[in-house]
Simulated scan of single mutants.
Amino acid sequence: MPHVVTDNCRNCRYTECVSVCPVACFHIGAEMLFIDPAGCIDCGGCVPVCPVGAIRDSFELGPEEDHWLAVNAEGAVGAPTITTPQPPLPTAESRRAELGLAG
Rank of each mutant, 00 (worst) to 15 (best):
V18A: 12
C17G: 06
V47A: 03
A76W: 07
C40S: 14
V23H: 05
G53C: 06
S19P: 11
G53F: 05
Q86V: 10
A92Y: 08
I55F: 09
E31F: 05
V23I: 04
C25W: 00
A92V: 13
G100I: 02
C12T: 15
V49C: 04
G78W: 14
D42R: 03
P88C: 12
H67R: 00
V47Q: 00
A79K: 08
P88R: 10
F26S: 02
C21G: 01
E60M: 14
D36Y: 10
D7N: 14
E31T: 10
H3F: 05
E31Q: 10
D42T: 13
T15L: 13
D42M: 11
C25E: 00
L99R: 06
T83V: 10
R10Q: 06
V71H: 01
D66R: 15
I28L: 11
A73Q: 13
T6M: 06
A97R: 13
G53P: 11
E98N: 03
C9P: 03
S58M: 03
P22A: 06
P22F: 00
A76M: 10
Q86N: 08
R56I: 05
S19K: 15
R95W: 10
S19C: 09
S94Q: 12
P85Y: 04
A38R: 08
D36G: 07
P88I: 11
P37C: 00
S19N: 12
P90Y: 09
S19L: 09
Y14L: 08
G44H: 05
C21F: 10
E60T: 07
G39W: 03
A38N: 08
C46A: 10
L61F: 05
M32W: 15
F34Y: 15
V71C: 00
V20L: 06
I28V: 10
V77H: 09
F26Y: 08
P80Q: 01
R10A: 07
S94E: 09
G103E: 13
P51W: 12
A70M: 10
T84K: 06
V4L: 02
V4K: 00
D57S: 02
P87T: 05
T81M: 00
Q86T: 12
P37R: 12
N8F: 03
E65L: 02
T81D: 04
A73C: 07
I82D: 14
E60C: 12
L99H: 10
W68F: 15
S94D: 05
G103A: 10
E31A: 15
V23K: 09
W68Q: 02
V77F: 06
G62M: 11
S58I: 01
D42V: 00
V18D: 01
P51R: 01
H27T: 03
C21Q: 04
I41W: 07
V52K: 07
G75P: 01
D57M: 04
A97F: 01
E65M: 04
A102H: 01
L33M: 13
H67V: 12
R56V: 14
P22K: 13
E64R: 15
A38Y: 08
P63T: 13
C46E: 08
A92W: 15
